[in-house]
C-alpha cells in the first residue's frame, strides 16, 4: 500500500494541486486536508506553496493560527514528517517549528526562475537520494524568501549563487530532529523532464524510501 500524504490547504494556497500531482507521481496516496482539518494518521504532511490568506498581515501568519496548524504541530512534535514548501515554509516558521525568518527578497520583487542549488545534508528523511554536495536545479517563485538566520539552523539546501539575499545563501533547513524540512524552492515543480528538470522527484522518493524503510514515527 502506498504511504498516505496529507496536502494541507489553507484559503489562498495555490500549489496544492501541483503537490498532490507530484506526490501521486512519486508513489504516495495524497489527500487534501483543509484548514479545519486534522493531519493525524498520515505518513507525511506537506504544506504547499501559495498565498495563504493572500499573504495579508504577513506571509504565513494567519495560516499558522488555524486549527489544522495546531494538528500539524502535534504531529510534528511526535516526530511526524513535515515538508513545508515556499509558503508552507513560511507557515512553519510562523508556527515556530523552524528557526529564523523569511523577509522580502533584496530585489524587492517576486522572483520566478530555475536556480542552481547545493545539497548540504543527506542524512535526513528528505534528501537521502542525493549525494552530499550534489548540484541540482529547482524553481523558485517567491517575493519573501530571504532567509534570516537565528541561532545555528541545520542547513540542508543552499543556493549556488545569491538569488534573494538569504543569509549564507540558505534555501532550506531542517528541524533539530530532522523530521521537519522547510524550503523556498519548489520540488513539486521539478518532477518531469518535459517541464525542465526532474531533480524534485528525488525529494519525494527519499521520503518514500525513509517511510518504506520502517522509519515511520507517528
Amino acid at each position: 500500500m502506498n504511504p498516505k500524504a496529507a496536502v494541507v490547504v489553507y484559503p489562498g494556497t495555490n500549489c496544492d494541486r501541483d503537490t498532490y500531482y507530484a506526490l501521486e507521481l512519486a508513489g504516495f496516496t495524497p489527500e487534501y486536508v483543509d484548514w479545519h482539518g486534522d493531519v493525524k494518521g498520515y505518513d507525511l504532511v506537506v504544506l504547499p506553496g501559495g498565498f495563504s490568506y493572500g499573504d495579508y498581515l504577513r506571509a504565513g501568519a494567519v495560516a499558522a493560527r488555524e486549527p489544522v496548524s495546531k494538528s500539524v504541530r502535534a504531529y510534528a512534535e511526535k516526530g511526524g514528517l513535515v515538508l513545508g514548501i515556499c509558503n508552507g515554509f513560511q507557515v512553519l516558521m510562523e508556527m515556530g517549528l523552524l528557526p529564523g525568518g523569511l523577509l522580502e527578497n533584496t530585489s524587492g520583487t517576486f522572483i520566478c526562475k530555475w536556480v542552481d542549488l547545493e545539497i548540504t545534508d543527506t542524512d535526513n528523511p528528505f534528501l537521502s537520494r542525493f549525494k552530499q554536495g550534489e548540484k541540482i536545479k529547482l524553481p523558485i517563485a517567491h517575493a519573501f524568501g530571504r532567509y534570516v538566520k537565528v541561532g545555528d539552523p541545520k542547513v540542508a539546501l543552499r543556493y549556488v549563487e545569491d538569488v534573494n539575499g538569504s543569509d549564507e545563501k540558505i534555501a532550506g533547513i531542517l528541524s533539530e530532529d530532522k523530521n521537519i524540512f522547510g524550503l523556498m524552492p519548489h520540488p513539486e515543480r521539478a518532477m518531469e523532464k518535459l517541464l525542465g528538470w526532474d531533480y524534485g522527484k528525488n525529494v519525494f522518493l527519499s521520503i518514500l524510501d525513509w517511510i518504506r524503510g520502517g522509519n515511520r514515527v507517528v
Partner: peptide
C-alpha cells in the same frame, strides 16, 4: 518582467 511572474504554477508550462 516575466521573472516577476509565476510562470510555472500549475506544473503545465512546457515552453516558458
Amino acid at each position: 518582467v516575466y521573472f516577476q511572474y509565476d510562470y510555472m504554477v500549475g506544473t503545465d508550462t512546457v515552453l516558458p
